[in-house]
Amino acid sequence: MLEGKFDQASLLKKIIDSIRDSVKLCNFNCSQNDGITVQAIDDSRVLLIALKMDPGCFQEFRCDRDMVLGLDLESLGKILKQGNNEDYLTLIAEDNPDSLLIVFEDKKKDRISEFSLKLMDIDSDVLTIDDMDNDCSITMPSADFSKIARDFKTMSESLQIIVTKESVKFKAEGQIGSGSVIFKPHTDLDNPDESIKIDMNQPVNLTFGAKYLNDIVKASTLSSTITIKLTDKAPALFEFKLPSGYLRYYLAPKFED
């Protein structure tokens, strides 16, 4: 049996809102030690989502035996809208389930809402992603990165990320002209999440689809910082930390033909 209780429904709501425009169907893998993990690739095979909700994400978590919950995220999203952000949210599944029970409890009123979501058999390819050495790692406020991704999408289909030891530069070239934003590393002692940290082994210059970056920055609601790991001619990793665990996006770059 699975029983996972979130202190606030808003955490799962934000996570599902961050991924459901990229993937519609995915398997939630549940286990006692790892909590709930998800790996899913978007239909265009450009973006991969790796989610890890450790048991620490939950106020209470038990999973007596490993199980896989095949979920339609659009349907799950409809049910999650029924609860309030502050509610307790509990996911309950029996062994070999054909449905997932979702329970909202209002903390102040004696109100309990229960929903049952039908599960699906989902065939999905799982990719092995080894921890590799990256050429660069940037940690910056997620709001800043989100603004760049949203603003530059109106100018160009692509966004270039150029990292040197001294700076990270975001650059877009489109029909109407071009633009760039440069950030230099700095440490904000009063507000550490406002700091910008650049670790560089080798400079990189990579280009990504603006559409996918716009999907990725939907997760900015989950964490005030984002870590971007870049390696020449390889997929980039965009990571948002959860209270315990992470939401990662792996995005294939664009190359010149």
């Binding site: 689809g209 995005l251 770059p253 190359f255 010149e256």
Partner: peptide, 14 residues
């Protein structure tokens, strides 16, 4: 114009 790569080509199926 740069060409979009397929992510799956970078990794192996588990």
């Amino acid at each position: 114009t740069p060409i979009q790569n397929d992510l799956v080509e970078f990794y192996t199926m588990a």
